[in-house]
Amino acid sequence: MISRRNIRVKVMQALYALESFDAFDLKDAEAQRKKGLQLLTEKFVNAAELFNVSMLYLARIAQYAETDSRQRSSKYLPTEADMNVNTKLAGNLYLWDMLENATFQERISEDKLDQKVEMDRVKKTYQHLCTTEKYLSYIQNDDRTAAEDKAMLYFIWKEEMAHNEDFQEYMTDTFDGWEDDKDMVMMLVDNFFKSPKSVNFLQFISGEKNEYARSLMTTVLERDQVLMELIEPKLNNWDADRVATIDLILLKMGVCEFLYFPTIPTKVTINEYIEVAKNYSTPQSGQFVNGVLDNLLKELSQENKIRKIERTKN
């Protein structure tokens, strides 16, 4: 489900978190490796939960149309409007494709995700949705098409959740790690709308990608001294201690991929770490990481230390 770039971000975050631990707590390389892998696993688990909770919120907001109809019609003195609440949204075809996904149902049950969804927040979001022109236009048409239903559900996600300042503030205040993971969650939800049938909610990361993540994490830790010996001469009069911690971590990861991951093209490595640096470090970090990795690649190539395996095309 997640991409290689997402994995690089999680490894970077785990390595950054590892920096905060006292050296006394990590007495040897094995202790450091175990702690690093533990942190990495926690990063994946947390990101997966945030994605699943976001999807469940989306579902519960759409389903709230039926709750609203039931509650209003049961008033002691309901008005005509109370007796005729439109419930078209609750029957949204795209919504039910998601709700009937067996892996989604299992994930909700296993992780008790409904306990993490606040119905007051669902109600508030739904009530605001009901004031929008998009929603009013949607319910005025009695006919139903899959394309229209998809567009409506995507509108809720984009305008009432992802781009809604109030909803985003709520997510930040309620869920640990939301600020770190929200860009990834937004990308994953967008990917769901592009290809809903391919999403397996029980497999946030494939076995192959998990192996890549763990290998990248442990190799950076085990080869730290070698990596620093290569990087430090290329810092252009910058003391390594003055380089942003995230930038230094990304440089180590990039050089690690150059030397120890033969199936990853060097161009892919450089481009990926430039983008991660721009998104997660300082405004100048993308250019900085690009310059250092490019210089290192030239030197390592001249010394014949870069050994890549070309993938054959079928």
Rank of each mutant, 00 (worst) to 15 (best):
F167A: 02
H163L: 10
E49G: 10
I264P: 05
L250C: 12
A240H: 14
L251I: 13
D97W: 13
L300C: 06
M98Q: 04
T172W: 06
V117M: 01
T266A: 12
V185G: 04
F167D: 03
P283R: 03
D180C: 03
T145L: 09
R33L: 08
E118G: 07
E148C: 04
E42A: 15
E106K: 11
S20A: 11
E257T: 13
T266M: 07
A244K: 09
Y212R: 03
F167Q: 02
M186H: 11
T282P: 09
D181F: 14
I156C: 02
A65P: 03
R107Y: 11
L89D: 09
N304Y: 14
T131W: 09
E229D: 15
V189D: 01
W157P: 10
D120F: 06
E100S: 14
D176H: 08
E159C: 06
K123F: 06
N314T: 11
T219E: 15
N84Y: 11
A146E: 12
K123H: 05
W157I: 12
L250P: 07
K116Q: 02
V122N: 09
M186W: 08
R4S: 04
K88E: 03
Y16C: 01
K150T: 14
L188I: 01
P233G: 03
P196M: 07
K34R: 15
S137W: 01
D22T: 07
K158R: 13
Q284D: 02
K209N: 14
C256H: 00
R107Q: 13
A277W: 05
F175L: 06
W238S: 12
Q287E: 15
N295G: 13
F44L: 07
N236K: 14
E148V: 09
E211K: 15
V289A: 09
K34E: 14
I306P: 04
S54R: 12
F261H: 00
K43Q: 15
D294M: 12
I2W: 07
E30C: 07
R33M: 09
V185R: 02
Q127D: 11
D82A: 02
Y280N: 08
Q63I: 14
L129H: 05
N295S: 15
A213S: 14
K112C: 01
L251W: 12
L113G: 07
V9L: 03
E100M: 15
N164H: 04
V226N: 09
K150N: 08
Q302F: 06
V292A: 06
T266E: 12
